[in-house]
């Protein structure tokens, strides 16, 4: 496996149907980005934020990110999650992963292939992920180029800025 393009993260496993309220609790909806990032999974898995380290990976089950359109993907990006792999990803959550430049991909079989604490090595260019402990490699579902470019390019804002459609700074 070649070095530069590989993302390597310690695995934290979450189950099926993880909803966006769990990642971004309602009372934090109108708070700032930093406060929101400090509330990720605060009710669902208290203490997790203190344990995880930047670059770590979340492995989710079926329908990851179900629920509301709130920017939970931005919170995962901001709290330092390196990437997310799930059996399936909710359509609206995937949109927000693209929108906010957070790396998230579907990967059937990923729940079985990884135990918590394993190291996941993801090479997006090759659409594969490997378990460093077992050596098992899995295929990651390809994302269409248009969406991948937006996701890896930092999301929608940099693109609209470059086209002169929105201003660089927030209004109001």
């Amino acid at each position: 496996m070649s070095g530069n393009n590989m993302l390597s993260g310690k695995v934290w496993k979450f189950g099926d149907n993880i909803n966006t309220d769990l990642m971004l609790p309602g009372p934090y909806l109108f708070r700032g980005e930093a406060e929101q990032a400090g509330a990720v999974f605060m009710n669902h898995r208290p203490g997790w934020l203190a344990e995880m380290k930047p670059g770590d990976a979340i492995i989710g089950g079926f329908n990851y990110g179900m629920g509301s359109s709130r920017p939970a993907a931005r919170s995962l990006r901001n709290c330092g999650v390196g990437f997310l792999l799930a059996e399936s990803i909710n359509g609206l959550f995937l949109r927000n992963c693209v929108n906010y430049g957070f790396r998230a991909f579907e990967c059937p079989g990923v729940t079985q292939a990884f135990e918590e604490g394993d190291r996941a090595e993801l090479i997006i260019e090759e659409w594969t992920v490997r378990n460093a402990r077992t050596g098992q490699a899995l295929a990651v579902s390809k994302l269409p180029k248009m969406l991948l470019d937006m996701m890896l390019g930092g999301g929608i804002f940099p693109m609209l800025e470059a086209q002169g459609l929105i201003a660089l700074k927030t209004a109001g």
Binding site: S68, S69, L92, R95, N96, Y100, G155, I156, L160
Partner: peptide, 13 residues
């Protein structure tokens, strides 16, 4: 339902 940034994308493009 889409994300907030999608709305900026939709109204500008």
């Amino acid at each position: 339902g889409v994300g907030g940034p999608d709305m900026l994308f939709a109204i500008t493009t």
